[in-house]
Structures are given as C-alpha cells and as structure tokens.
C-alpha cells in the first residue's frame, strides 16, 4: 500500500514529460454528440482571468485601468464591456473580472500593476475557474431550468449576473444573441457539466 503511494508521488514530482502538464477543469469529459443538437457546449481552455479590485470613486484607479484595457471600466451594476482583446464584467461594487483569450494573465497583471498605485488588488484567478460557453436553439430553456434568475426577461445581451446555477454559484453573461458565458469555480466545473448533460438531454447536446 505504501509502495503505491510513494510511487505516485515520486512520478508526479519527477514529471517525466519535463514540463508542467496543463489540464482544463473539464479535460476529462467525453460526450456522444446528439444528431439534432439544440444545445451547444464548449469549454474555452486556459483563458486569462483576473480579479481586479479598486474604488470606482478613485479617478486615478479608473484612468489607470482604462490606459491598460483601452476602455473605461463598467461601473454600473451588472454591466460588462468587451473589446477585441478583453471582456470586463462588473462583479460587485469595486470588483471586476477581466477575461482575455489571447493574452497571458501575467502580462495583463504586470501592465495593470505598472499603471496602478495606491489601494487596489489584481489577482490572477485563471487556474481557479473556467469559462464555458453555451449556445443553440434551446439554450434559454436549459438556463431557465437551471437558474432561479429570470434569464429570458432580465438578461439582455451584454448583461452579467452572479447567481445560482443548479446549486453552484457562477457568473452568467449574455455574450451575444443566443450565446452565454458561464464562469464557474473549477471545483464546481464537473458538477455543472453533469447538470448540463442531464438538463440538455431532452434537447440534444453537442460539445464542440
């Protein structure tokens, strides 16, 4: 028994590949795609995610962030802003989530730290949560089954809410007409995925 434990630890420590193996929280999922799929699921691997905190009443903070991102932070509750490189979501008063698919999180963090001074916080949370996209004809029905939030009436394109999904907490963003972003803690990713498989069964699910 002890041999086995020792063996696994030793193998991990030595890392025979010679490099750190990166795995997305949902790297293990496999799914038999439905022929007529009305729900399309995708996990966007390894996108940069940073939590930014600072006072929206501090003009220096707002100006510094604008200089890095190229646009002003969305300070109104439940709003978001997207550019070619970044998505920025309002999470709480004084808290934003920055998302980028093609920029390394360390690069974003360094450029924010270079511009900002005083009372602020930038935390790289890329490894702690994952981004999933959900689209397709029946996407709204699936979301309505899963959230208490009124997705149909209260979530127009561009809006972002942090709410409960099944029994997990996630950030839900209506990215484009019929396309939603789901950002969830990695420990909840598998649970949300299994929930989605079950909730989409009657419509047909495809993973891309």
């Amino acid at each position: 028994m002890s041999d086995l434990t020792t063996f696994e630890f030793a193998a991990r420590a030595q890392n025979t590949q010679g490099a750190t193996r990166r795995e997305t929280p949902l790297h293990h999922v496999s799914h038999q795609n439905a022929e007529a799929a009305a729900v399309v699921f995708n996990e966007v691997p390894f996108c940069a995610q940073l939590t930014l905190r600072g006072s929206p009443e501090n003009p220096d903070f707002l100006a510094g962030v604008e200089k890095v991102l190229g646009f002003a932070l969305p300070v109104q509750p439940l709003t978001s802003h997207a550019s070619d490189s970044y998505y920025v979501f309002w999470i709480s008063p004084g808290e934003w989530l920055i998302l980028a698919e093609n920029i390394e999180p360390a690069v974003i963090e360094a450029s924010l730290r270079a511009e900002l001074t005083g009372h602020f916080a930038v935390v790289d949370v890329s490894a702690g949560q994952t981004l999933m996209t959900l689209s397709g004809e029946a996407v709204q029905q699936v979301l309505q089954k899963s959230c208490g939030y009124d997705v149909e009436a209260s979530l127009p394109v561009g809006k972002v809410v942090t709410t409960t999904f099944a029994k997990a907490t996630l950030v839900l963003h209506h990215q484009a007409e019929g396309k939603y972003f789901l950002i969830v803690r990695r420990s909840f990713a598998d649970y949300v995925w299994r929930w989605l498989v079950d909730a989409s069964a009657e419509y047909g699910l495809t993973v891309v």
């Binding site: 509750p77 439940l78 008063p93 208490g148 409960t164």
Partner: peptide
C-alpha cells in the same frame, strides 16, 4: 441595493 435588482432568497 448593490446589484440594484430583485433576487431570490436562495442567493
């Protein structure tokens, strides 16, 4: 009062 929205109790 921070989200400026009505939400359900389970949140």
């Amino acid at each position: 009062p921070y989200c400026q929205e009505l939400r359900e109790e389970n949140e």
